[in-house]
């Protein structure tokens, strides 16, 4: 009786010991790359898996979501600055990449695969490189006769109370407003914002909700991310996708590329560069274009789904993403005030 318990005890201790040993065994092997990802896991994970099978390099990832405002990955990257654990950060927009550059967490790298990506989507110093993008587009209900073609529609008197926009304090909406501030200057942008408010624009919590509102006919149109619009179209909802401001003198359509960032002092520098090259290849862009996220390739000549048009044929808003990042910080108090918080 007593002996049996001692025996079981020893077995138990050994088992727990092995488990703990296995857990704390350092994964230091060079054939691994550690990636922090802010792009939705549903879309990013298959790409990482493909990389594993094609190169034999093991990918260990931390995922995050836009819903959680990417606090997981970003907070970790910054908190880990003194002892970096990540090799690469896959940001789903360039603003956070810019923050990493400014905080000296990123490392400069010019991937040979990114040569053909237009320079507007790349950091000139190589601290981040854009790829597969979302466009900020109008989702418009099919029953609307007078289709809006410019963001001026938000301040058009005839559309009073018929437009909706996601909370400008968050996500790509903040980025777009900050972008307008950079190309127009503060004064003009603030006039636009005031006019928009006077025109009784409705607010939603996020772009998905905006798109749903438009699809349900509660509002005529909204600025959303291209994937939000395409999703609703593929679900058969009565909406169309409109690229805004495509005229010669218009500001152009705001583009939000993904951004690949090499982390300074990461544990696997060789594998990290291979992974960067893989992310920035035309093949990856093509996969992301035909996945459900329907992202727009930035390499010329990559095929894309019928709802979208190639980046070369789009009038793109000419912004400096570093400036936009700075502006986002600067206009926070203004936006809070605008929201009457």
């Amino acid at each position: 009786m007593k002996k049996r318990w001692t025996f079981l005890g020893i077995i138990g201790v050994i088992t727990i010991g092995i488990i703990i040993w296995r857990l704390i065994r350092s994964p230091g092997s060079d054939n691994t790359v550690i990636v922090y990802v802010s792009e939705d896991q549903v879309f990013s994970e298959p790409i990482l898996k493909d990389f594993e099978t094609e190169t034999g390099i093991r990918v260990r990832a931390i995922y995050d979501t836009e819903e959680a405002k990417s606090t997981g990955a970003m907070n970790r990257l910054i908190a880990e600055q003194n002892n970096p654990r990540a090799d690469v950060y896959w940001a789903n927009e360039p603003i956070r990449a810019e923050v990493l550059k400014q905080k000296e967490i990123a490392e400069s790298y010019f991937s040979p695969n990114a040569r053909n990506i237009p320079s507007v989507f790349k950091d000139p110093d190589g601290y981040w490189t854009g790829f597969s993008a979302r466009a900020r587009v109008f989702v418009v209900n099919k029953n609307v006769k007078n289709i809006p073609r410019t963001i001026m529609a938000y301040i058009d008197n005839r559309r009073k109370g018929k437009a909706v926009i996601a909370n400008p304090l968050f996500g790509t909406t903040t980025a777009e407003i900050a972008a307008l501030f950079t190309i127009w200057g503060n004064q003009r942008a603030e006039v636009f914002m005031t006019a928009m408010k006077r025109n009784q624009v409705a607010l939603s919590t996020n772009n998905g909700e905006s798109a749903d509102f438009v699809a349900a006919g509660r509002f005529d149109f909204s600025l959303v991310d291209s994937d939000d619009a395409i999703n609703r179209m593929r679900q058969g909802k009565p909406v169309v996708l409109i690229y805004p401001d495509q005229g010669k003198n218009d500001p152009g359509c705001f583009i939000v590329p993904n951004a690949a960032v090499l982390i300074k002092g990461g544990p696997h520098p060789q594998a990290a560069r291979k992974f960067m090259d893989y992310l920035l290849s035309p093949e990856t862009e093509q996969k992301l274009a035909f996945a459900d996220c329907a992202q727009i390739p930035l390499h010329p000549g990559v095929s894309l789904p019928p709802e979208l048009k190639p980046i070369g044929e789009t009038n793109v808003m000419p912004v400096n993403y570093a400036e936009v990042a700075g502006k986002m910080l600067e206009i926070q108090p203004y936006l809070k005030n605008w929201l009457e918080y």
């Binding site: 939705d40 896991q41 549903v42 979501t65 836009e66 459900d292």
Partner: peptide, 9 residues
């Protein structure tokens, strides 16, 4: 994983 898959899953 459920939490991160919830975005667009």
């Amino acid at each position: 994983r459920i939490f991160t898959l919830m975005a667009n899953g």
